[in-house]
Computed example of a mutant assay.
Amino acid sequence: MTRFDADDPTERRKLFADAVAAHRERASPFFTVEVDPNPESDGEDAPAPWVQFADGTFNVDVTDEELERAKSLLSEFPEFRIDGMESPEESEGTNLRITARSDANRLAAFVDRTFREVYGRDDDYRAWVAAV
């Protein structure tokens, strides 16, 4: 990979597809995509959302409200499924593990839509591939 961030919808999806390809080529343990915190939806002290992918599985942390939006989004990706949900008592959210065996473009579309529809980011949000 030669670039690591994008803020245009088309460029973001290309970036995410490139991250999937780099992850697969390098047989890396995972790749992580991060965005800036959104004070309006995340709260001042809340961490910025992230999406991680490893071994055909997405890993995301969601609030109860975001969980419902994630389930709705997954209804449009029938080849993806929730394989695990953990809600530790000391945490206010849920960690989702979503099996997603698909091509790089379909995985990239899911990542982009997760940030927009689950985490409420605007169309021009900036994302970084923080680790590959």
Rank of each mutant, 00 (worst) to 15 (best):
P47D: 14
S102H: 01
D55W: 14
F4C: 03
D5V: 08
E68H: 00
E92N: 02
R116T: 07
L73Q: 12
D112A: 02
A109V: 14
P88V: 09
R26G: 10
E86K: 15
G43R: 00
G93N: 12
T114F: 02
A100N: 10
H23Q: 06
D122S: 13
P78W: 05
L15P: 05
A127F: 00
S28Y: 10
D124P: 02
A104E: 14
D123P: 08
Q52F: 09
G93Y: 14
G56C: 07
P78G: 07
L74V: 06
A21Q: 02
V60G: 00
N38E: 07
D64V: 09
E86I: 14
V118Y: 04
E89D: 10
E66H: 01
E90L: 15
T57A: 04
K71P: 05
F77L: 01
D123H: 14
A108D: 00
M85N: 01
A109T: 15
R113G: 00
S28Q: 05
K71F: 12
F58Y: 08
A54S: 09
V20C: 04
D123Y: 14
R113Y: 04
D36S: 12
F4G: 09
L73V: 02
E76C: 06
L74P: 05
T99H: 10
F4D: 07
A17T: 15
A104T: 14
G56R: 03
R24C: 03
R116L: 03
F77N: 01
G120T: 02
E65A: 11
T94V: 13
V20M: 12
A22Y: 03
E66G: 04
R3V: 03
A100L: 07
S102D: 00
D123L: 13
E92S: 02
P88Y: 02
D18R: 08
A21G: 00
R101F: 12
R101G: 04
F53A: 07
S87R: 07
D55E: 11
R26Y: 11
D123R: 13
V132M: 15
V129I: 09
E40S: 06
V60E: 01
D18Y: 10
E86P: 05
F58G: 08
R3F: 06
F4N: 09
R126N: 05
E92Q: 06
T114W: 01
E65L: 11
R24N: 05
A27K: 15
P49F: 02
P39H: 13
A21Y: 00
T2I: 11
D83I: 04
N59F: 12
N95I: 09
W50C: 02
F77Y: 01
R13I: 03
R69T: 10
T63R: 13
G56A: 08
L74R: 06
D112L: 01
E117T: 10
D61S: 09
E40V: 12
R24Y: 07
E65T: 11
F16C: 02
F30S: 13
F77A: 03
A17N: 12
R116Q: 01
S75E: 04
A19W: 07
R13E: 05
A6S: 11
S75W: 00
V35D: 04
D83Q: 13
R116H: 00
L74F: 03
A104M: 12
G43Y: 03
F31L: 04
P37A: 14
A21M: 04
D61K: 13
E65Q: 06
